[in-house]
């Protein structure tokens, strides 16, 4: 029981982290119709910028400065890169962001080296806040949850209570009408792209100390973020939230419980063959849940796409 509660908290941290990335990505997709492959690269830039800044003036200023810088980089990418490629069609845009992801990884390696950098949580948050039974919950985890929740609320307020938010919301469903009403859609695009990147940057700043800051960090998270917004339904903010939490809990619970495939098949009444050594499927029998945990989201995505191509909450064709 304690373990379930603790796993819920751990899964919530992972899920909210995913949400910080997927919310920006899904907003960008809804506005511009482009899946940004480089989105996780902005997450990585956030971590590296924060690392660099925190070496001079500490973690707390970095928490605010780094995302702004990432947002500016994102806006510049939109203005000078994506907008240029836009006229060649969506496939070209997708390929552009794919190339950009490769390039950003190379640039990060070029500037900061190929190994891990020493980016740690601030001293003031390095303690165990409370324990549930024997399980310590680090203060930094609660801090991550707080930041993510604050961002979610802020995002919700901006989208529903401000004029800019209204324009964005309108553009989600009726992009042509918004343009016809005379709004400066390219500027909104640039802004949304910048803000989306900045959100990814925030995620990088706070996740870097926990998940490690190294040139491969974008790749590890990158495709999962896609999976999240595809499962949630492209363009749906609520879908992104639900899918993020779902995937966060799915992977965390899968890693926490050692359920073997043999038990599962046994429960279904299927017995293993007597001689395992010759069977082509022998490895299936020794599989356990933690072994396949991290690839479950991909399975989920394929299933969702096959049976419901709009995703769980989507209403537009991808």
């Amino acid at each position: 029981m304690d373990l379930i509660l603790v796993t819920m908290i751990d899964g919530l941290v992972t899920g909210l982290l995913l949400f910080m990335l997927s919310s920006g990505l899904t907003l960008i997709f809804s506005m511009m119709g482009v899946l940004n492959f480089a989105h996780a690269s902005f997450y990585m830039l956030g971590a590296y910028f924060a690392y660099q800044i925190s070496r001079y003036i500490g973690f707390w200023p970095a928490l605010f400065i780094a995302p702004v810088l990432v947002g500016l980089v994102g806006a510049a990418v939109e203005r000078y890169g994506l907008r240029r490629v836009h006229k060649y069609g969506h496939v070209a845009e997708l390929i552009f962001t794919f190339g950009l992801a490769l390039l950003i990884e190379e640039v990060v390696q070029f500037v900061w080296g190929k190994g891990h950098v020493e980016y740690n949580a601030p001293e003031s948050l390095q303690f165990a806040l409370f324990s549930i039974a024997d399980y310590e919950i680090a203060a930094y985890k609660i801090f991550m949850i707080a930041v993510a929740a604050a961002i979610f609320i802020a995002l919700l307020l901006i989208l529903t209570r401000t004029r800019v938010g209204m324009v964005i919301q309108a553009a989600l469903t009726h992009p042509d009408t918004v343009e016809a009403l005379g709004h400066n859609v390219p500027l909104v695009f640039m802004g949304v792209f910048g803000v989306g990147s900045a959100l990814a940057g925030v995620a990088g700043v706070i996740a870097g100390p926990v998940l490690g800051t190294f040139p491969g960090m974008a790749v590890v998270l990158g495709s999962i973020v896609f999976v999240t917004i595809v499962v949630g339904g492209l363009g749906s903010l609520w879908g992104a939230l639900v899918a993020s939490l779902l995937i966060g809990w799915l992977t965390t619970f899968a890693a926490s419980y050692n359920i073997g495939m043999a038990d599962l098949l046994g429960a279904l009444g299927i017995e293993p063959p007597a001689d395992l050594s010759e069977s082509l499927l022998r490895d299936i029998w020794t599989l356990s849940l933690p072994q396949v945990g991290p690839i479950l989201p991909y399975l989920l995505m394929v299933l969702v796409l096959v049976f419901r191509p709009y995703g769980l909450f989507g209403n537009r064709d991808a």
Partner: peptide, 23 residues
């Protein structure tokens, strides 16, 4: 008390594994 394998290079957050080790 535990003998397990996790996918190589795919795990983002090792906390659940750590919890199991404590448990």
């Amino acid at each position: 008390v535990g003998n397990e394998l996790h996918p190589i290079g795919k795990v983002k957050d090792f906390t659940p594994y750590a919890r199991k080790i404590i448990a």
